[in-house]
Structure formats: C-alpha cells, structure tokens
Amino acid sequence: MKVKLLFICCILGFQQIIFAQDTLKLNVAEAEKLFVANNYQLLLAKYEIEQAKADVITAKLFDNPEISHENLFYNHETKRFLETSFATGQFSTQISQLFKLAGKRNKSIKLANTAVKLEEFE
C-alpha cells in the first residue's frame, strides 16, 4: 500500500513538471523593445554611428601647435645640473604649427559627414 501511494505521488509530481506552462506574455512593442535592448549587433552599430559623429567634430578642429624644449641636463664644463644661462648653458626651444592648404580641412569635414551617413544606412 505504501509503495502504491509513493508511486502515485511520484507520477503526480512528474505530471506537474511535464505539463507546466510558460506564463510570460509579451505584446509586439515589448518584444521589439527587448530585441533592440539585447541585440549586441544593433548596439554596436549605434556606437559606430556615434564614433563617426565624433570623427566629424574632430575633423572640424584645427591642429594643435607642437612645442618642444631641449635642455642640457649636466654641463661638463661648469659641473652644474640644468644650467640654462646664455653664457655657459645649452638649450633649444621650438614651436611648429601645421597649416592645411587647398581646402583639405573642409574636404575632411565633408568626408567625415559622408562616413556618418554610411554608418546610419548600415
């Protein structure tokens, strides 16, 4: 009797597991929202568009000047460190600025805008 009762309980337990139903219900708008939020390729494409827009901003900027300074660390003649006097020290300072000619800056801005449109179309 106990064996039959145990057997019936096991069958009822397995029957509930087998016939359990999924209770998740979504409408089309919620499913689309979950798809867009969890689709990594779409997220990557969105960030590529943002990167292309950042490239447009970068193309609009002018090049920074380059400044370099060179100083003699140790003067063997006077046996002093970091000597920058005109009489015995050695140092050199340079400033250079890159100028783009023939409308290269405007063409690079247009090229960056075209890259944004291509990314959006993808």
Rank of each mutant, 00 (worst) to 15 (best):
N75A: 05
I95N: 06
K46L: 07
M1G: 12
E122C: 07
E119Y: 01
F62H: 04
V116L: 01
L98M: 14
F91P: 07
N113V: 02
N106S: 14
I49P: 01
K100W: 13
L12F: 15
Q97H: 09
T88F: 01
R80G: 01
D22E: 13
N64P: 04
F14C: 15
Y47S: 12
Q94C: 13
P65T: 03
F19S: 15
F19M: 09
L98Y: 09
E70T: 11
Q97E: 05
K107G: 07
L24S: 11
L44T: 15
N75E: 03
E122L: 11
E83F: 00
Y47H: 13
R80I: 03
K110A: 10
K33G: 10
Q21W: 09
T84P: 05
C10I: 05
T114Y: 12
G89I: 00
L101S: 00
F73H: 03
F7Q: 15
Y40F: 12
E70Q: 14
E70V: 10
K60P: 03
A87T: 11
A31C: 01
K107L: 13
T114N: 07
A102G: 14
Y47M: 02
I57K: 15
E83C: 00
G89W: 00
S85W: 10
D55L: 05
I95H: 01
N75G: 01
N71C: 02
K107Q: 06
A20G: 05
V116A: 00
V56G: 01
S68G: 05
L44N: 13
A54G: 09
Y47K: 13
L72T: 02
S108A: 13
F14T: 08
E120H: 12
L111N: 15
A52F: 00
A52T: 01
K117L: 14
F99R: 11
A20M: 06
F19R: 11
V36I: 15
S108V: 03
R80S: 08
L6G: 14
H69R: 11
L118D: 11
V56K: 04
K25S: 13
Q94I: 14
Y40A: 06
L6S: 10
K104N: 07
K53A: 00
I109G: 00
A115W: 07
N113T: 08
K25L: 13
K4Y: 14
A112N: 02
Q41T: 11
D22H: 04
Q94K: 15
K110Y: 04
E48L: 03
E48Q: 10
N75C: 07
A87H: 06
E77S: 03
I57V: 14
N75W: 04
L42V: 12
L6W: 03
V116C: 02
S68R: 04
L42H: 06
K60F: 09
E50L: 02
E66N: 09
N27Q: 03
S68N: 11
K46Y: 04
L26R: 06
I67T: 12
A29R: 12
E66Y: 05
E66C: 04
C10Y: 10
A102S: 09
N38V: 02
G13Y: 07
A52V: 00
F73I: 07
K104E: 14
Q90I: 06
R80V: 02
L111F: 06
I18G: 03
N75F: 06
A20D: 03
K60N: 08
S85F: 06
K104C: 08
L42A: 08
D63N: 14
E70G: 05
K79C: 01
